[in-house]
């Protein structure tokens, strides 16, 4: 679903919640005990909007975060310094970097908080994102990543990249 220039994606989790609750209400309204079915039918005026809010609120949040990230993209593209993964260390915390590598792992995409492991010839690093990437990134994709070096747990942990852009450059095979 595209709003303006932003491609809004709802993660599988709110969709699953929507399906589960909608199914529950349908079963209660049509196949439940008569008293319960009556109550549910009388309440449809607020149940239906509430059910759609399960989809609308995540969509709005995703739109907001995607548009914020889109605003940051030019700044990151301008400021980023291309580095080798192995040379990323604690003293680079806060620096904006660009790395190019292959996606070895892609996790937590179903909750719109993807975490990738990106490796170049020198090593691998965790790349965290707090929204959906514009590209549909999968394992074995060759990507360029723009982001800021942060600690994994904000104040402690090893350096990881807080990703603003992850973009496919080509694909293996």
């Amino acid at each position: 679903m595209k709003i303006g220039s932003v491609d809004v994606r709802i993660s599988i989790l709110p969709i699953a919640a929507f399906i589960v609750f909608t199914s529950g209400f349908i079963i209660a309204a049509f196949f439940g005990p008569p008293e319960m079915a009556d109550d549910v039918r009388k309440s449809l005026i607020w149940i239906i909007p509430a059910l759609f809010l399960l989809l609308i609120i995540p969509a709005i949040l995703n739109y907001m975060s995607r548009s914020q990230y889109a605003d940051l993209e030019p700044e990151y593209e301008m400021k980023a310094k291309t580095v080798r993964v192995r040379l990323i260390n604690e003293s680079m915390i806060g620096k904006i970097v660009r790395i190019v590598g292959v996606v070895e792992q892609a996790r937590y995409q179903f909750i719109n908080r993807p975490q990738f492991t990106v490796a170049d010839r020198s090593g691998s690093i965790s790349v965290k994102m707090f929204t959906t990437p514009a590209d549909d990134v999968k394992v074995n994709d060759i990507v360029e990543v723009y982001g800021q070096v942060i600690r994994r747990y904000i104040v402690t942990g090893e350096p990881v990249i807080n990703c603003v852009i992850i973009r496919k450059t080509e694909q293996n095979g």
């Binding site: 310094k81 580095v83 040379l87 260390n89 003293s91 680079m92 620096k95 970097v97």
Partner: peptide, 9 residues
């Protein structure tokens, strides 16, 4: 060493 580690190449 410091500048190199900071990425200030």
């Amino acid at each position: 060493f410091f500048r190199f580690s900071e990425g200030e190449y």
